[in-house]
Design a protein around this nucleic acid. Structure first.
Length: 254
DNA sequence: ATGGCCTCGGTTCGAGGA
């Protein structure tokens, strides 16, 4: 079973890219972030025609998440159950007995900003929610755009980025607190080449120079990690015309 | 990384992303 995540940075613009990638890769499940569509404009038919069931939670202009699966999607939750968040950044559902939690963690703007405080509060809620979900769902996958590069090896130039948003110690503490609940970073379960990233700035020829960060992740509970066969980051879509600035991450499970 | 782009909404510029 292949499970993928991709921040598409506007599903309206990237629908052709998505359909092409689904056709070529046929993941069983894919989590999307930054759909940037209100629900009335979500391209349900095109996705169903591609062979996927879908649930989504969108808003005007910003954010928006969706879960696509070849199998039935049950017990969908469109937000944290007990914390009112005006931004659509979380969608969870059960697919083939696996609890799938798709997250679009806030960017945080800059470490001294209100948006950073919101990111910290959001990560607190995510920790709480994850602890509760793990009690009921030993088979659990949490994936998406975490907007956190966990370690310096996930950053093209750690010295230049030191202390900045996406790599700051407090953000990393939140990331490892999720792992401490019993989740594993599937990408790091395996030997990987150095300098593998999932996002590159549109500016400064960052992709060509491989000036990237690894901020999109697939985390697996112990029971799921034990069946994980590999985890790869697929750079191919980033080379296309009009690409998303993120690229898909895929993990295979037995 | 001095900055450099892309998307959206709504009118050709500001907000937000990362």
């Amino acid at each position: 079973m292949n499970i993928a995540t991709w921040n598409v940075n506007s599903l309206k613009v990237r629908l052709p890219h998505l359909l092409e990638w689904l056709g070529q890769n046929q993941p069983d499940i894919i989590a999307l972030q930054e759909t940037k569509l209100v629900d009335a404009q979500f391209p349900q038919e095109a996705i169903r025609d591609a062979g996927y069931n879908v649930v989504f939670s969108g808003q005007p202009t910003y954010n928006g998440v969706a879960l696509l699966a070849k199998h039935t999607i049950d017990d969908a939750e469109m937000a944290f159950p007990d914390w009112a968040d005006p931004q659509k950044r979380l969608i969870a559902a059960t697919i083939k007995g696996i609890r799938i939690i798709n997250v679009y963690v806030p960017n945080g703007a800059a470490v001294d900003s209100d948006k950073y405080q919101y990111k910290m509060a959001w990560l607190d809620q995510l920790h709480r929610y994850t602890a509760q979900q793990l009690k009921h769902h030993p088979r659990l996958i949490m994936l998406g755009d975490f907007n956190i590069a966990p370690k310096d090896e996930d950053v093209h130039d750690p010295a230049a980025w030191q202390g900045q948003v996406l790599v700051s110690p407090d953000e990393r503490k939140h990331f490892f607190a999720l792992l401490d609940l019993g989740l594993q970073d599937t990408f790091r379960l395996f030997d990987q080449p150095p300098k593998i990233y999932s996002w590159w700035d549109y500016r400064m020829l960052a992709f060509r120079r491989n000036h990237g960060l690894r901020i999109d992740h697939i985390l697996a509970s112990e029971a799921m990690a034990a069946t994980c066969q590999h985890c790869i980051i697929d750079k191919a879509p980033r080379k296309q015309e009009r690409p998303s600035d993120h690229t898909p991450v895929v993990a295979e499970f037995k």
